[in-house]
Amino acid sequence: MIQTIAAAVIWILVLCLLPGVRTRKDHSILIAAVAIATALALNIDPIYLAGDAALGGRNLLDLCANILMVVGIYFLSQAILRAAEFNDASFRRDRLGLVILWFVTGSLVIAFFSIQAPVSSTRFMVDYGGQPAAALYSAIQFVYIGMVVSVTGYVCFRFRRRMASFHFRLAFTLIGIGCLLALIVVFAVLGMDITHLLGDLSTMGKLAVVYDASFVGAMLFLCAGLALPPVARRISRRIELRTREGLLSSLTEIWEKATATRKDTRLATPAEGIKGGDVSTLKLHRMLVEIQDALLMDPSAADLLDEADRQTVTRTESFLASHHGGQEHRISPASWGRRHGESDR
């Protein structure tokens, strides 16, 4: 049940990441999510038994799942470190990290084939964990995971305040908590490996409870943190689009009234024929500038505007200012129009 819940949560994360796959340059998070989700899905009992039977019934599927898990953890860490701007071009060519990953993968293969596990088991470590080779096999995987999530969690907590937007700060906090819970998972697994070797099944059972709770918690927090930025961006874009369309409709009426006596200097194309966000924003800029120019040249035109019209103009100015807030050179809507719009009239 634990594996099923965790796999479902990760696959939901994959679905959240898929809509932006064409525009996203870095696909590390998606690769990580697919690898981890597949690894967890392979450990669901019916899938494991059917898949391992196809591979000869000697638990090779467990090895495949664990390799996918460490690969997924590696890509997950790289994506988060890049998002935190912790790593530069040298990290993008993370040769040391890749060497360690290959070493861990090779060690897992060697340790696995040293285990006497002739029959497929959905409880691999419970049935075969009493062997030193099995304990080593588990320890290699989880020590690596522990090291990676420790660094990742540290970076998330240290650099989360650098994030400009609230949803990124919250995402890094959630991921950091997920990494902390994942570290508890690592210690629980290592503890179970040791107590299994010592024959202390009572302590091993208690650690299993800790493992189950922390494992589900880690998956939930990590997935929530990773899904938050793309979901928040999509929601923000939809809100921005609706806001822009609403302002455009309202401002068009104001523009018609304010520039009624200046038709020779108005927009060359009608405001109704707008398609695409960028064109809409340019139209808002241009109409706002023409309204301001009309009021400047003919103060009596202000009598045509009521309080609701003035509030719409103010909202448009605020919207355009925030729309250009991330640009290197910030200019007011009015000055933008006069610099680039005057010559177009």
Rank of each mutant, 00 (worst) to 15 (best):
G106T: 06
M69P: 02
A164T: 12
G205N: 09
S114W: 00
F86E: 05
V143S: 02
Q292P: 00
V210E: 09
V231F: 02
I36N: 10
F172W: 08
G337S: 08
A171Y: 04
A134E: 09
T261H: 09
Q116A: 11
R169Y: 02
T203G: 12
L68Q: 00
W255C: 05
I177H: 01
G56I: 02
G205T: 05
M163R: 15
L198M: 13
S214T: 07
S150K: 00
M1S: 07
A117F: 08
A208M: 10
T23S: 15
E328R: 11
R93T: 07
L304D: 01
S300C: 02
V148W: 04
T269Y: 13
R158E: 04
S120I: 11
G276S: 07
T203S: 14
R169M: 08
D127A: 08
F168Q: 10
D264N: 10
W336H: 11
I44S: 00
G51F: 15
I274H: 05
A79V: 05
R162I: 02
L288T: 04
R234G: 03
W336N: 04
S332E: 12
D26K: 14
L197A: 01
D306P: 02
S236R: 15
I12H: 13
V185E: 03
V14I: 07
L13I: 12
T4K: 14
L222M: 12
S120K: 11
V279Y: 11
I140A: 06
L17V: 01
A164N: 13
S249I: 07
T314Q: 14
G325T: 08
M1L: 06
A218I: 14
G51M: 15
L17H: 03
G325C: 09
G57K: 15
F86S: 05
G326P: 12
C179P: 03
E317L: 06
I145M: 11
I100W: 06
N43E: 09
A65G: 14
D264E: 05
F159C: 07
Y74H: 08
G325R: 15
I29Q: 06
L251M: 14
A321N: 14
F124Y: 15
A32N: 01
I235T: 04
K206W: 02
L170K: 07
S249E: 06
G129N: 12
A227T: 08
R286L: 09
F221T: 02
R310H: 14
T122K: 14
L296F: 00
G56R: 10
Y154M: 13
A171V: 03
R160W: 03
A224K: 04
M69K: 12
V34T: 10
R338G: 04
G205Q: 13
E240G: 13
T269N: 15
I194E: 08
K25W: 01
D26P: 13
V189C: 00
D298A: 03
R244T: 07
L247E: 10
V313W: 07
A308P: 11
V126E: 08
Q327W: 11
A111E: 03
V9P: 08
M204L: 05
R95K: 10
A65K: 09
L201Q: 11
G56T: 07
P46K: 04
P46N: 01
L108M: 15
L96Q: 08
F103M: 15
A308I: 10
V143H: 08
L136K: 05
E85S: 14
V70W: 00
